[in-house]
């Protein structure tokens, strides 16, 4: 290439409508490809560079700050209707890098990489000294709370036996000693009232996911469990993923559009919410 040609990027305002349009396409892409955790919403556009692309088009480099919402990725609620997780609930932010190609006025995501991290304990304490912080998901009290809550939910279920899909977040409170958990579930081919060996139950071909919030409170001589689950509309049967080794239970947050995507059967498509059941 001749020196000095084609190597200059266009500096665009971060709040320019064109930048915001690119950012929105990027956010839609992230939320459509997340397979775990919660949907994220745009908080701030950090940087934007627009490079000329030969023979035609432009390449947008974007850095975005996002915030976690309270909608699980399996929840079909449009992200625009999802509430941002508040600081007092121990907010989680995302730091994303994108490259998008703009051709004929249309954006296409070429690269996306997001890392999420919870707010610091100090910051949470500043706004709410007594608020419980996020707890490790493998904490024994968290695991126990999820198991007890799922058992309580299944005991009340007149239909399918539900399996755990993912523990999404947990908080431990000292007074009264209690554990708050949020987790995703999926219906199996077993009947809840007749299950003897849950390991033999299989997820339905037509996936039916749910999302549960539960609190286990320790008390003298026992414990109380309160659980509420929202069951979403069934997901249509779609082809299974290719045997490329990418079909893992816990997908990476980094998303490479050039690589084959993990099981699309796990992605939400429905828009109607059924429930809550309990």
């Amino acid at each position: 290439a001749p020196p000095g040609l084609g190597l200059v990027y266009r500096e665009l305002n971060c709040d320019d409508p064109e930048t915001e349009e690119a950012a929105q396409v990027a956010m839609d892409y992230v939320n459509a490809h997340l397979l775990q955790g919660y949907k994220h919403i745009l908080n701030q556009i950090d940087k934007v560079k627009v490079w000329p692309r030969r023979p035609t088009g432009e390449l947008f480099e974007l850095e975005l700050d996002t915030l976690e919402t309270i909608c699980h990725v399996l929840d079909p609620t449009p992200v625009a209707n999802c509430t941002v997780r508040q600081l007092t609930e121990h907010a989680v932010e995302g730091d994303c890098d994108f490259r998008l190609l703009k051709l004929d006025g249309q954006f296409a995501v070429l690269f996306a990489n997001c890392d999420s991290s919870p707010d610091s304990a100090e910051d949470v304490r500043k706004v709410c000294p007594d608020c419980p912080l996020l707890a490790p998901l493998n904490d024994t009290r968290v695991v126990h709370a999820v198991e007890a809550a799922l058992a309580a939910f299944n005991a009340q279920s007149n239909g399918s036996y539900y399996q755990i899909v993912e523990v999404s977040r947990a908080q431990l409170a000292p007074l009264p000693p209690s554990t708050y958990v949020e987790f995703a579930v999926a219906a199996t081919d077993c009947v809840a009232k007749e299950v003897t060996d849950p390991a033999k139950c299989n997820l339905l071909a037509e996936k039916q996911y749910g999302f549960c919030k539960a609190t286990l409170t320790e008390k003298f001589g026992g414990e109380d469990v309160a659980v509420t689950c929202t069951v979403f509309q069934t997901q249509p049967v779609v082809p299974q993923p290719q045997p490329d080794g990418n079909n893992v239970a816990v997908p990476p947050l980094a998303v490479d559009p050039a690589a084959p995507q993990p099981a699309p059967a796990n992605l939400p498509a429905a828009v109607r919410v059924v429930g809550p059941l309990v």
């Binding site: 305002n13 709040d15 934007v48 915030l67 941002v84 910051d123």
Partner: peptide
């Protein structure tokens, strides 16, 4: 002939192209 700097008025608001506005809150 008096040579000097032209008087400067109050500076206008500085427009910073990036980062953009915060939509919710900053962590």
């Amino acid at each position: 002939v008096v040579v000097g700097l032209a008087p400067t008025g109050p500076a206008g608001p500085v427009v910073r192209p990036c980062p953009g506005r915060i939509r919710h809150f900053k962590i």
